[in-house]
Structure formats: C-alpha cells, structure tokens
Design a protein around this nucleic acid. Structure first.
Length: 428
RNA sequence: GGAGAGAUGGCAGAGUGGUCGAAUGCGGCGGUCUUGAAAACCGUUGAACCCGUGAGGGUUCCGGGGGUUCGAAUCCCUCUCUCUCCGCCA
C-alpha cells in the first residue's frame, strides 16, 4: 500500500513511476485525492464539534457540583444537539475512509529507478550467471523418470492420497529434503539470520499485512471452520511478527529465516510447467526475511542476492541471476531479482528464488515502523527471498548429476547425506 | 470441551462516572556533580490523525467492536486473547 502523503505531495511522480509497471494510475489517484480532501474537511468539522462538546461537559460537571441544576440542563440539551451532528459526520467520515482505503490498496508499489523497462519475462535483464551446463548422454532422463527409477518420489501415491501436486518423497528422496532444509538453514544462520519455525496457518489480518489479501486470496488454501489460511510462504508469518510494532533503530536490521511447507493452489497452471517437480501445491522452502533501515535496504537486497547465489554455487548448479522488468514484477515489489537454475534434460531455466525489496509497501499496511535517535517513527523497509525453494533444486540436481553410476551429490551435501552419491545404479 | 480470574503507557503496577493520556516504581533520554564512570539529585519521556508557513491549537486511543450517559479506563453487551483448575490428547 502506498503512503497517502506521497500521493498528496507528488501525484504526477506516482503516475509516471507506475507507468513503468504498465499500470494506468491516473483515474485512481485523482479519485483518491478528491476523497482525501473531502475526508479531511469532514474531520476538521467533527473535531471542532467534539471540542465544543468536551467544553460543555466540563461546564456541566462544574454546574452540577455547584448545584446549579437548571443551568446544567440547558447545556445538556445543547450538547445533545451537537452530538447528533457529530454522529452524521462520523458516519460520512467512515465511508470516506474505507473508500480511500479500498482504492489505495489497488495501487501497486512503485518500481525502483533500477528496474528495467519491459513488458514480460522476455524483457528481464540477466545480471550474471555461473556454473557449467553438464554434458549428458542422449539417453539422459528427466527428473520425474529418475525419481521413479530410483524410487525417490511417489507422485501417484500423492495423487491418490491427496491430489495432483502433493507428492510423497521416499527413501533417499525424503532424506534429501531433510538434508537440503538443514543445509539452507545452516547457511542462513551463518549469515546472521535467526531461525524460526512458524505457524503454517495464519489469520486474515496477517494475510492482508504481506499483501496476499485482498487480491490473491484465490492462491491460498482456506480453512473456513476457523477462518485461517494455509501459508503460501514463510514470509507471511515471519514478516507479520512485526506487524503493528515499533522497532528501535539500533535493533535494525532484523534478519529472520524459517523452513516451512508452502501451500499454493496455483489455479490455472497446466502442461509442461506442472510436470514432475516443476510446480506443486505443497512444497518445502527456506525463506529469508529482513527488516531494514530505508537508507540501506538496497544494499541489503544485494547482500541477499549474494547469499542466495552462494547457495546455488555450493550446490554446483548452473545458474543465472535475472533482474525483473517493470511488466514482470509483482504487485508489491519495488525491485526483484530471480535466481534460476538450469535443468539439463528439460533444457529449461527454473526459478528457485525470488528476492525483493518492498520498501514501505508492506510496512505501510502492517504499520511496521522504527524509531530513530530523535524519537521519530518511520516506516521500515521489508525484504525477503527464497533461500531456497526445494523442488526445482531437486529437479536440477537429479537431471544434471545423473550418470550410469547413479546420481552424484555436490560436496556441500555429503555430510548431510552421509556420502557422495544420492543413489547408485545398483539401487534401480 | 467445562468452571473461574484477568487484559491499563517500553516493563511492573495504581486508578470503579467528571479537572485522567492516566499515580507510583523501574527502564530510556537530557542535565547537575565527577578526571571518567557509578551513585545521588533535577528535568524529561506513548501513538495516530486534523488545522496552522510557524509558534501553537484540536480530536481519538487504557485488548477489539457496540451500547448507556451531558460526560466512561471506570457501568452494560459482545468478541478475542492470557492465566488457573477439571476433562481429553501427540
């Protein structure tokens, strides 16, 4: 949610910046500013009336203690008339306020200066890349066939027990999940993040705070009996820890990490995008979250990209880092980098992390502030990124590291897995 | 699930209809003192919104929402949460 004072002071800037996201903001901005002016006029009127009523009440109190009942009665009547006017104003005021809010939440975040122009994923900018694409024999298998051959993942059992997109991991496949989660968490902790284990269901206020509500409710699973949502990412509970909080400036930055299962309905997806591990309804992910001082949030974003880059380097996967263009960015983001790994058999780049600076977009909704040395409160900047999402990492590890001997593990996982091979071909 | 108690400022904790945004203590900040620090003493110390160039003024907020009243932290209704006891349970 954008800050209203920014719209008031510089509406043209807002409109121009949102054009980069291919969002026509002028009608909304104009309507918001009109309503805002009306709202402020109403509040001024109401406050003046309330001040009069408060004044009268004090006088009545004095008269009563002096026993001047008749005079007091006259003032009571006067006060009653004013109160009726206040009620009407209050009603109008609430309407204006909720109208403004409803319109304001429809404005996307402003893209940062550094965001490239562009309309779709094809216009994203490759920042850098690394790792070598392996040479594979012509009979190399895609990960879903490898998973079946070595008994690592049982998609059919998942479909039977729950539905498509809810696989069982099995044997070395299950252990690999555990190993990756531990590896990712250990790396995040080494970078100074505090580990949390969050609730997997959240209430509506929380879902609103990070921007899943009101627009993206169809992406979340919902439990109606208790009005709770299954989290699509640990970002949601983690960031909301600080909803409605004021953090002392010297406690910044706040750095949080958590492993969680993530639940996404992914309505409308189909075809090769959802084959195997490419897109699931439930998956595992380690998330990193930061709450930063506005002056250093972009430096923090770069740090986070490097932290994630190091993970894919240690996993010895071919990767590239992409800066998203205005048209491909999410509603709430000011600047986003995606980290993608290459799956050598599918011959596709798969997104395994998305790292964003939301500036004050989330903190405005959440009233997440910090207090500076002068005692002034300001909105903090929030950032988050995947570090990392597991399924596509697993897909890439399987496809890229296969040989006639089995499936090799990168060195960083040897201690977690108790060996250098995930599976050997004798196990097939 | 049943019974009871409670929710007040960063924390602890007073306050049961008027001058209460709220005593007091701790913590924080500023100062006096000190070579420096501690102690002591003095002062100060919540958030949001509106009007105003400013100085300043006004309004709201004592878990959330609603009500009674000229006037509510204080009375009533309701919801949420916490604690204690019982039941159930990984």
């Amino acid at each position: 949610m954008l800050e209203l004072p920014l719209l008031r002071s510089n509406p043209e800037l807002v409109i121009a910046r949102l054009a980069k996201k291919h969002f026509e903001a002028r009608p909304l901005v104009t309507e918001i500013l009109n309503l805002d002016a009306e709202r402020r006029a109403l509040q001024t009127q109401r406050d003046q009336l309330l001040a009069q009523i408060n004044q009268l009440s004090k006088q009545i109190g004095q008269l009563m203690t002096q026993g001047q009942v008749q005079e007091a009665e006259a003032l009571k009547q006067q006060s009653g008339r004013l109160k009726q006017q206040v009620q009407q104003l209050e009603h109008d005021l609430e309407q204006k306020q909720s109208s403004i809010h409803d319109l304001l939440v429809r404005l996307p975040n402003l893209p940062a200066e550094a965001v490239p122009e562009g309309r779709s994923a094809g216009d994203n900018v490759i920042v850098r890349s690394g790792g070598a694409v392996p040479e594979l024999p012509p009979d190399a298998l895609p990960h879903w066939d490898l998973a079946a051959r070595y008994g690592l993942i049982d998609f059919e059992a998942g479909a039977k027990v729950t539905g498509a997109g809810f696989p069982f991991y099995r044997g070395a496949g299950a252990k690999l999940q555990r190993a990756l989660i531990s590896f990712f968490l250990d790396q995040a902790i080494a970078c100074g993040y505090t580990e949390y284990e969050p609730p997997l269901l959240v209430n509506a206020d929380t879902a609103f705070g990070t921007g899943q509500l009101p627009d993206k409710d169809q992406q979340m699973y919902f439990v109606p009996a208790d009005a709770l949502y299954l989290i699509p990412t640990a970002e949601v509970p983690l960031t909301n820890i600080y909803r409605d909080e004021i953090i002392e400036e010297h406690h910044l930055p706040v750095k949080l990490t958590a492993y969680s299962a993530c639940f996404r309905r992914e309505a409308g997806s189909y075809g090769k995008d959802v084959r195997g591990l490419n897109r699931l309804h439930q998956f595992d992910k380690v998330e990193i979250v930061r709450i930063e001082h506005p002056d250093r949030s972009y430096q923090a974003l770069e740090e986070m990209v490097h932290e994630v880059e190091r993970l894919v380097q240690m996993l010895e996967l071919p990767y590239r880092i992409v800066k998203l263009c205005g048209g491909d960015m999410s509603f709430a983001s000011a600047l986003t980098y995606d980290v993608e790994v290459y799956c050598a058999v599918q011959q596709r780049w798969l997104e395994v992390s998305s790292i964003s600076n939301f500036e004050t977009f989330q903190s405005q909704r959440m009233k997440l502030r910090y207090r500076d040395a002068q005692g002034k409160t300001h909105l903090a900047h929030t950032l988050n990124g995947s570090a990392l999402a597991l399924p596509r990492i697993v897909a890439s590890l399987l496809e890229n590291n296969q040989s006639e001997d089995g499936i090799r593990l990168p060195a960083c996982l040897h201690s977690y897995m108790g060996g250098s091979m995930l599976v050997t071909s004798t196990a097939a």
